[in-house]
């Protein structure tokens, strides 16, 4: 059962990592235009370098 002392923090840590990523995405306004983001990936407009904005 000593393994629990490693596994539980690990599972909580992984979950917290996911939660952190979700909150970061939410703060970064990444849920503003879901349809647009889904379409933008099809355009080759900024494939060579990131869009400067």
């Amino acid at each position: 059962m000593e393994i629990l002392s490693i596994l539980i923090p690990v599972s909580l840590g992984l979950g917290a990592l996911g939660l952190g990523a979700f909150i970061w995405a939410l703060r970064g306004r990444q849920f503003e235009d879901p349809k647009g983001d889904a379409e933008r990936i099809l355009s080759d407009e900024w494939d060579d370098r990131p869009r400067p904005d």
């Binding site: 379409e39 355009s43 407009e45």
Partner: peptide, 11 residues
């Protein structure tokens, strides 16, 4: 309505 429209309008 689609990816082309986005590119066209922005360009």
């Amino acid at each position: 309505h689609c990816a082309m429209c986005i590119t066209d309008v922005e360009r």
